[in-house]
């Protein structure tokens, strides 16, 4: 993996982590917001690199998949993440996470970078579920 690829992936992970901390500071009474952001970012990152691994990377493909993920976010927010009603804050944060996560695929990258991005995505997705359902179930 080139230094450029490593910087791109680490930059994305660092940005997502920084936003999670910022959400904690901006909305301290809503710890689940961190989970929605993290889950949206992680699911999108893992999904995008998986599809790209089996197809040919193009900006059109990444843009289309990102829009699909945002659309799927509407569905998850209306179903499994729906705790009281459709929450536009949850939707906005998970979709912002999806958009930031998609930036790791603004360039094609190597298979190794994409494999590591998949693992990072699964990590953020797992963290998101813990933060949403862990908090809700506490």
């Amino acid at each position: 993996m080139s230094r450029r690829d490593a910087a791109a992936l680490l930059g994305c992970i660092a940005t997502l982590s920084a936003v999670i901390v910022a959400i904690r500071l901006a909305f301290p009474s809503h710890p689940d917001y961190m989970g929605h952001f993290s889950a949206g970012a992680g699911a999108t990152m893992a999904f995008l690199v998986t599809v790209v691994a089996f197809t040919q990377w193009t900006p059109h493909l990444v843009a289309g998949l990102l829009l699909l993920c945002v659309g799927m976010g509407v569905g998850t927010e209306a179903t499994i993440f729906r705790l009281a009603a459709f929450d536009r804050m949850d939707f906005a944060l998970q979709s912002a996470g999806a958009a930031l996560a998609a930036m790791v695929l603004l360039t094609m990258g190597t298979p190794l970078r994409n494999a590591l991005a998949f693992l990072a995505g699964m990590g953020f997705l797992f963290l998101g579920f813990i933060l949403v359902f862990g908090v809700a179930g506490a």
């Binding site: 450029r4 791109a8 994305c12 040919q56 900006p59 912002a96």
Partner: peptide
């Protein structure tokens, strides 16, 4: 303050990803 910070971080990440990029083409 969170919303502007989110935009700034997004812009910075976009710049980082595209900096010196040889491939915005497939």
């Amino acid at each position: 303050w969170f919303a502007p910070l989110l935009v700034i971080l997004g812009a910075a990440l976009t710049w980082l990803q595209l900096r010196g990029s040889p491939d915005t083409q497939s």
